[in-house]
């Protein structure tokens, strides 16, 4: 290694890989992955989230899973936590997931059409 900058570059890259173990703040994407969710197609949704976040090298984003939220009919459901705010998306497809990453996570614009509010209307 010939410079500090090189080390810094490695560090930045590497931190992404381990932030799960240290991150307390940031964005949490919680995918409902109980039997109901999986049956409704939660797996490809989650994979889409993982791939997209990876591709965009987003920092401070944690993807996690959870059990049954209780509204099985709305699965696949995903909750995005950011600070105090919680947005619940429902009936997602992989396509939606990529959109949520692009709009919500990157640009801070909630993908209104996928939220539980929009669906319930």
């Amino acid at each position: 290694m010939k410079s500090i900058a090189e080390l810094e570059a490695i560090r930045k890259r590497a931190q992404e890989g381990v932030k799960l173990r240290s991150e307390k703040g940031g964005v949490r994407v919680v995918v409902g992955m109980a039997t109901c969710g999986i049956a409704a197609g939660a797996r490809p949704v989650m994979m889409a989230f993982v791939e997209e976040i990876n591709k965009r090298e987003l920092k401070n984003v944690v993807i996690t899973q959870t059990g049954c939220i209780g509204a099985c009919r709305l699965e696949p459901m995903v909750e995005v936590y950011q600070g105090e705010e919680k947005i619940t998306y429902v009936k997602l497809t992989a396509e939606d997931a990529r959109k949520i990453v692009a709009e919500h996570l990157v640009n801070g614009r909630v993908v209104k059409e996928c939220t539980i509010g929009a669906y319930e209307k």
Binding site: G17, L20, R21, F49
Partner: peptide, 10 residues
């Protein structure tokens, strides 16, 4: 380093 949603530390 790839991104994983979960790490299992053993």
């Amino acid at each position: 380093m790839d991104l994983y949603r979960s790490h299992v530390l053993v």
